[in-house]
Amino acid sequence: MSDGDIGALVAAMTREVADFPEPGVLFKDLTPLLADSRGLDAVTCALAEAAVGADLIAGLDARGFLLGAAVAIKMGTGVLAVRKGGKLPPPVHREEYTLEYGTATLEIPADGIDLSGRSVFVVDDVLATGGTLTAAVRLLQHAGATVPGAAVVLELSELGGRTAVAPLSVTSLHTV
């Protein structure tokens, strides 16, 4: 599927929800895309193409888990779930970051998975402000991984996430 076709598919299968999670926000819901076998296959193939050469796929909590697992299967690699804070037993590597409304934490296991020198490609659903993606990259690097890039299904360009994550190479299947 061409880049234009995948972008059109993402646009057509994204549900917009006004005033969620708060008034004035237009939420972009990818659930219809992920629930459609054709849509899921198309985005999985496109994300996997962006991740060629990676040793491991990191999927960000929570929809990134679904996408990351699908990409890992397509590529014949494993998947690492990058969890929100407090969801994993210790010991963990953790990275705290700032959100527009407070702080949050991401975690990965500190033992049982050796990331030293491994190429870990990050997959997520949406790139908005870039805070979560930036924190995930720092977390993975702290654990010894190299992060060659990331890919998202949807980029909300007006929120400046691409600038926030620079110089990381980010592939977006559709940008609004």
Rank of each mutant, 00 (worst) to 15 (best):
M1C: 07
M1W: 00
M1S: 10
D5W: 03
M13N: 11
M13L: 15
M13I: 03
T14G: 00
T14C: 03
V17N: 08
D19F: 08
F20D: 08
P21G: 05
E22M: 13
E22K: 15
G24T: 12
V25L: 11
V25Y: 08
L26G: 00
K28D: 07
L30T: 02
P32G: 04
L33H: 00
L34M: 14
S37G: 06
R38L: 13
D41I: 08
A42E: 01
V43M: 01
L47P: 02
L47K: 02
E49H: 12
A50V: 06
V52I: 07
A54R: 03
D55W: 00
L56V: 01
L56S: 02
A58R: 02
A62V: 04
F65V: 02
L66H: 01
L67W: 00
L67K: 01
L67I: 03
G68D: 04
A69E: 02
A69D: 05
K74I: 00
M75L: 15
G76L: 08
A81E: 00
V82C: 07
K84R: 15
G85L: 12
G85R: 13
K87W: 13
L88F: 13
P89I: 14
P89N: 13
P90E: 13
V92H: 09
V92Y: 07
R94P: 05
E96T: 15
Y97K: 10
L99E: 07
G102Y: 08
G102M: 12
T103V: 14
A104T: 11
L106F: 09
I108M: 09
I108Y: 05
A110H: 09
D111V: 14
S116H: 14
G117C: 11
S119G: 12
S119W: 03
D125Q: 12
T129P: 04
T129G: 09
G130A: 07
L133N: 06
A135W: 04
A135C: 09
R138K: 15
L140Q: 03
A143H: 02
P148M: 07
P148H: 11
A150S: 14
V153E: 04
L154S: 05
E155D: 15
L156M: 12
S157M: 07
E158S: 09
G161M: 00
T163I: 10
A164E: 00
V165C: 01
P167M: 03
S169V: 13
V170Q: 01
V170A: 02
S172M: 07
V176D: 10
